[in-house]
Computed example of a mutant assay.
Amino acid sequence: MYKVCFVLPGVSGHAVGGYKMVFEFANRLSAEGCEVSILFDNTNLYRRFRAPELIRKNVANFMTQIQPQWFKLDTKIKKISTLEKKYKEKLADIDVCIATAVQTVDLVYNGIKAPRKVYYIQDYENWDIDEKYVQETYGLGMVNVVISTWLQKIVNQYSKTKSVLIQNPIDTSIYAAKVPMCQRKQHTIGLLYHEGPHKGIKNALEVLKKVKKIYPDLTVKMFGQFPKPDLPDWIEYTRGASQAETVEIYNWCQVFLCSTIKEGYGLTGIEAMSCGACLVSTDYDGVKEYAVDGYNALLSPVGDIQAQVDNVVRLFDDMDLRNKISQNGIKSTDKYSWDEAMRKFNEAIGVSVLKK
């Protein structure tokens, strides 16, 4: 039995896109018959709280076992905390260890023994870590797996071998258009709320205010993992939305708005497209993996608030354009299959070699 270990930078009690992709791969590897472990590097978890070290460790270890409550993880998957005594003994005979973020690279590369080391790169993580160090991690000799072509170009500049491109797949049996565009309420917008400046939520709110002046009947549904911000009463906010709730929002809105400034991929955009919502987004690097301006989305320069307003207006006022963008969006997501992603991932981590 092939033994796989993913390493995540600490346990998380709320939905995180990067964690979601790791959990998805873990579930599918487990279903294929692999023995899967997830090691949570909880070294700095809860350090902000003034509590004795022993209590902090016990809480972290307990949370490791009960999370994620926001994602249905296969019960056969072992969850391990770095704060457990002799945690490395539980990983003594693994076949492959996978770093999933720049913070986990040192632990995977220097701290855990495994004949194969893989680096699953989901963004250019230079926002709070020295950029030179980030670049150096790409050249350590691990098998680099990237989620987008723009990331691949960066990583390949520093990698010893060409990185493996596996674009984020989507389960179209879940993210599906259940409500035809013609049956959706007029002048409706959905979007993700995130406090990170790179997500551009301040710009998104400005877009919404301007659109509201044009369409007084505008209604908005926003979801996210953060506490509800100060919002006008025409914006409904769902904190900690489940997968089913996000699918419902995607199927409710005519337009899904994204004002992101920088992101590796952008899962919510492609999920919304798969559910038939018309994507109005900035043209940040990640979205270009699946969105084509004028075909399956309307894109505009990052930071151009008025351009996004104009694109929303175009869709609200033009039924034919709305239907075209919606239908092409649904069709576009078919090629991002989990079968193809798993084939590539199995090859990258060495499972396919074992099966031969």
Rank of each mutant, 00 (worst) to 15 (best):
Leu299Pro: 10
Asn323His: 10
Asp293Ala: 09
Ile201Arg: 09
Leu91Ala: 07
Thr149Tyr: 14
Pro227Leu: 08
Met142Pro: 01
Thr246Asn: 12
Met181Tyr: 14
Val145Ser: 02
Gly329His: 02
Val164Met: 04
Asp171Cys: 00
Glu89Lys: 15
Phe345Ile: 02
Gly139Ser: 13
Tyr336Gly: 00
Ser159Gln: 02
Ile325Leu: 15
Glu236Asp: 05
Gly18Ile: 00
Gly286Phe: 04
Asp74Pro: 03
Leu39Ile: 09
Gly264Glu: 07
Met21Lys: 06
Thr137Trp: 01
Met273Asp: 11
Met142Ile: 00
Ala177Val: 06
Val247His: 06
Ser326Ile: 12
Lys113Ser: 13
Tyr175Met: 09
Leu54Asn: 03
Cys275Gln: 08
Thr64Cys: 09
Leu45Thr: 14
Arg343Glu: 15
Ser159Leu: 03
Gly196Thr: 05
Ile66Met: 04
Val96Cys: 15
Val292Asn: 14
Cys97Leu: 09
Asp334Val: 14
Lys113Phe: 14
Gly350Asp: 13
Gly350Gln: 08
Glu53Leu: 13
Gly294Ala: 13
Phe62Gly: 03
Glu53Cys: 08
Gln167Ser: 03
Thr75Asp: 13
Met1Trp: 10
Pro197Leu: 04
Val143Ala: 10
Asp130Leu: 12
Lys324Ala: 04
Ser326Pro: 07
Trp70Glu: 11
Glu245Met: 02
Arg50Ile: 04
Thr82Phe: 05
Tyr87Glu: 04
Gln65Pro: 07
Glu136Trp: 04
Val143Gln: 14
Val7Cys: 00
Gly269Ala: 12
Lys76His: 11
Lys212Phe: 04
Gln254Phe: 03
Ile121His: 07
Gln69Trp: 13
Asp283Leu: 09
Phe226Leu: 07
Val59Thr: 06
Gly10Tyr: 01
Gln69Thr: 13
Ala272Asp: 06
Glu206His: 08
Asp334Trp: 14
Leu29Thr: 02
Ile325Glu: 10
Ile112Ala: 05
Asp310Cys: 10
Val280Thr: 01
Cys258Arg: 05
Lys3Leu: 05
Tyr175Ala: 03
Lys178Gly: 02
Ser332Gln: 10
Gln308Ile: 10
Gln183Gly: 02
Pro169Leu: 03
Glu24Tyr: 09
Ser242Glu: 08
Asn42Ser: 06
Tyr193Val: 12
Tyr215Leu: 02
Glu35Asp: 14
Ala277Cys: 12
Val309Asn: 03
Glu248Val: 05
Val312Lys: 06
Asp283Trp: 09
Lys212Arg: 15
Tyr237Gly: 02
Gly33Phe: 11
Pro52Ser: 09
Arg56Glu: 09
Val22Lys: 00
Lys228Ile: 10
Thr161Asp: 10
Val353His: 15
Tyr120Cys: 02
Asp320His: 11
Thr188Pro: 07
Ala291Pro: 07
Leu107Glu: 08
Lys202Pro: 00
Gln308Cys: 12
Tyr133Gly: 09
Glu245Tyr: 10
Gly224Tyr: 13
Arg239Lys: 15
Ala341Leu: 13
Gln103Asn: 13
Val108Glu: 00
Ile66Gly: 05
Val313Pro: 08
Glu195Arg: 12
Asp230Pro: 01
Leu107Trp: 14
Tyr295Glu: 13
Gly269Thr: 10
Trp338Arg: 06
Gly190Tyr: 07
Ala51Asn: 02
Leu257Met: 04
Phe40Arg: 01
Gln254Lys: 14
